Deep mutational scan, measured.
Amino acid sequence: AVSDRLIGRKSVVMEAISPQNSGLVKVDGETWRATSGTVLDVGEEVSVKAIEGVKLVVEKLE
């Protein structure tokens, strides 16, 4: 599936994300709604860990 190619990809937070609120990330020039178990600020680099419905699950790059 097209979405499977996103797992493991680097992306950049475009709208802040917290455990309570989804935000936005940009992956390969496309904007996606995303969630995370931690707070992520605009501009942080993250990695796509999973896809749940139409949202990406991301975490901060170490």
Rank of each mutant, 00 (worst) to 15 (best):
A1E: 11
V2H: 12
S3K: 11
S3E: 10
S3Y: 10
D4I: 12
D4N: 13
R5T: 09
R5I: 08
R5D: 09
R5N: 09
R5V: 07
L6F: 06
L6D: 04
L6G: 01
I7T: 05
I7S: 03
G8E: 04
G8P: 03
G8T: 03
R9G: 05
S11D: 02
S11V: 15
S11P: 04
V12T: 09
V12F: 06
V12L: 09
V12I: 14
V13R: 00
V13N: 01
V13M: 01
V13I: 05
V13A: 02
V13C: 01
M14K: 06
M14P: 02
M14F: 09
M14I: 15
E15A: 10
E15K: 09
E15V: 11
A16E: 07
A16I: 09
A16K: 14
I17G: 02
I17W: 00
I17V: 07
S18T: 13
S18C: 08
S18W: 07
P19K: 06
Q20T: 13
Q20K: 10
Q20N: 12
Q20Y: 10
N21C: 15
N21A: 12
N21S: 13
N21H: 14
S22E: 15
S22M: 12
G23L: 00
L24G: 03
L24N: 04
L24D: 02
L24T: 11
L24W: 12
V25P: 01
K26Q: 12
K26A: 11
V27H: 02
V27D: 00
V27T: 04
V27F: 06
V27L: 12
V27Y: 03
V27A: 04
D28F: 06
D28A: 07
D28H: 05
D28E: 08
G29D: 12
G29M: 05
E30F: 08
E30I: 09
E30R: 07
E30H: 07
E30T: 07
T31H: 11
T31L: 15
W32V: 09
W32M: 10
R33W: 14
R33T: 14
R33C: 14
A34R: 00
A34Y: 00
T35C: 12
T35W: 02
T35F: 03
T35L: 07
T35Q: 06
S36K: 00
S36C: 07
G37N: 15
G37I: 11
G37Y: 11
G37H: 14
G37R: 11
T38G: 09
T38V: 11
T38F: 10
T38C: 13
T38A: 11
V39F: 15
V39E: 11
L40C: 15
L40S: 02
L40A: 05
L40V: 07
L40Y: 05
D41Q: 13
D41S: 12
D41I: 10
D41N: 13
V42S: 04
V42W: 02
G43A: 04
G43W: 04
E44W: 09
E44F: 06
E44I: 08
E45H: 11
V46T: 04
V46H: 01
V46N: 02
V46Q: 00
V46L: 01
V46I: 05
S47P: 01
S47E: 14
S47V: 15
S47A: 11
V48H: 00
V48N: 01
V48F: 00
V48P: 01
K49C: 12
K49R: 11
K49Q: 08
K49W: 01
K49P: 01
K49A: 09
A50M: 07
A50K: 08
A50W: 08
A50Y: 07
I51F: 06
I51A: 06
I51C: 05
E52H: 11
E52A: 10
E52T: 09
G53E: 06
G53I: 03
G53A: 04
G53R: 03
V54S: 14
V54L: 14
V54T: 14
V54G: 15
V54E: 15
V54N: 15
V54I: 13
V54C: 15
K55W: 15
L56Q: 03
L56N: 02
L56C: 03
V57S: 04
V57Y: 08
V57M: 06
V57R: 08
V58S: 01
V58L: 01
E59R: 01
E59I: 09
K60N: 05
K60C: 04
K60V: 06
L61H: 08
L61M: 11
E62V: 13
E62P: 13
E62H: 12
E62T: 12
